[in-house]
Nucleic acid binder design. Structure first.
Lengths: 249, 249
DNA sequence: CGCTGCCTTGATCTTCTTCAAAACGTGTGG
DNA sequence: CCACACGTTTTGAAGAAGATCAAGGCAGCG
């Protein structure tokens, strides 16, 4: 049953039934900030959510759209982006199963500051801001957990600011690859494979550099035997070496 | 009663009594996320806080210290920083009256990822993580408000990432000055004065550039008549022009 | 009145971008 | 199953933005 494709990344097609009502409750149970609730409570919460499928490349929403809903990724990966007037795009984060995005501020009316795109086919659960606020009020432990996660993300974003301010592209790329490995890595023969389609363009948008510069450095890394990479995929073979580069070796 | 100093910035000395128990309750009432509580509740919360004064330049804590407390700025300004192995420092944020910093994650045990320094003399209220968690549990509306503010900060940090990735130093500096003006601006004859001691080094650490580059661009801005600046102070005279530069004019 | 620390300015050098073109891999349609 | 066509990746050469190195100037303080 070997296919003919070259990329080791398995872009498991998101089946419509993965989004069905039947499995929604199961998915919600595995969302970090609902994990502590009883089956009964989750059932109640479930009713406020609705599910939605998106194909790879499709936008979930655009920057500037009125911010009305909060989303939870049930399956697949999404890219959270900001675009500039110059056309230069910045990839802020990659979110996967259990991560949330969208409207957090309880005070309605604003617009989304970023664009979110489906990187693979995805299934998302969503709820309107009003409904989410009600859940947070009804279940204070959930609010604390959401606060916790948001705090962690804030620190992550501050670390990114630090990186961009103080380190070279080479260091930032090494750091980014390590972070992706921690988040999406999967041990395989080629090395620890980053389980998602990932182009040089994506890496450029994540590190604040150009495609060409990233390509050059990736070639170096590969020549050194630290990574193995092809069209839209990357595997890490020597994370220790990358760690040293990231730290300024 | 005119002094001989040149800087228009008033570095009002923080008097010890500003930190006294008497006025603590008054201060807590003006902290955004306690504003909705009754006088009685604030009185109860008050007992968990302790006050502490710091002189200008003094550290509140260093990166790597065990993260045990959450702080609220009662008076003065603090700098939230990250340092790099290379000695290059990054200024993540400037916090003033009513802002909080320190240990947010409820799950104890970690260390602070950043260093916080008193930029002016300051008075801070602080509470241990345990006590803060209890408050959040006892007063769910407070938790929601803290979540809200944290969400806003996350967006601010993501905007900084965007800026660093996509815009020139000139644009970032213009943007930074405008942000400081919004936060700390005070109308005076010279223009809208940024009410705090602010060196070229500080601006360099905020924009991810070197002191020299910042100095050059500040000279340009001043020559153009958009700002007026001296030793450790800046006033904005033409915010519209800066806005245009920041937007890529 | 001189010292210390902040700010300015210039010259050079490095890093990264930009522009351009060729090579490669993947999926498609014949 | 093969060959073509497209988007991704690579590589090169020239250019620009900003860092680094090095002096000198100026303000405020003791």
């Amino acid at each position: 049953m070997t296919t003919r494709r070259k990329s080791p990344v398995e872009t498991e097609a998101i089946q419509p039934q993965m989004c069905s009502v039947d499995v929604r409750q199961h998915i919600l149970r595995h969302v970090p900030f609902f994990a502590m609730l009883s089956e009964e409570d989750i059932g109640r919460i479930n009713q406020s959510f609705r599910e939605q499928g998106f194909e790879a490349g499709e936008p979930i929403y655009y920057a500037g759209d009125p911010a009305a809903r909060l989303y939870v990724v049930a399956a697949g990966k999404v890219k959270q982006m900001r675009h500039s007037l110059t056309g230069q795009d910045v990839l802020l984060d990659i979110l996967s199963e259990g991560d949330f995005f969208g409207s957090l501020s309880i005070l309605g009316d604003e617009t989304y500051p970023d664009t979110v795109l489906a990187q693979t086919g995805i299934c998302a659960l969503s709820i309107d801001s009003e409904g989410f606020r009600e859940i947070l009020q009804a279940y204070p432990p959930v609010a604390l957990e959401v606060l916790n996660i948001t705090g962690q993300r804030l620190r992550g974003a501050q670390e990114a600011v630090h990186q961009l301010s103080a380190y070279s592209v080479e260091q930032r790329l090494a750091y980014t690859l390590l972070k992706l490995m921690d988040k999406l890595g999967e041990a395989q023969e080629v090395g620890v494979l980053i389980q998602m389609p990932l182009s040089r363009d994506d890496l450029a948008a994540m590190t604040g550099a150009t495609t060409e510069t990233i390509s050059r450095i990736m070639s170096q890394f590969q020549k050194a035997g630290w990574i193995k990479s092809g069209r839209q995929w990357v595997a890490i073979r020597d994370s220790e070496a990358l760690r040293e580069v990231a730290a300024g070796g």
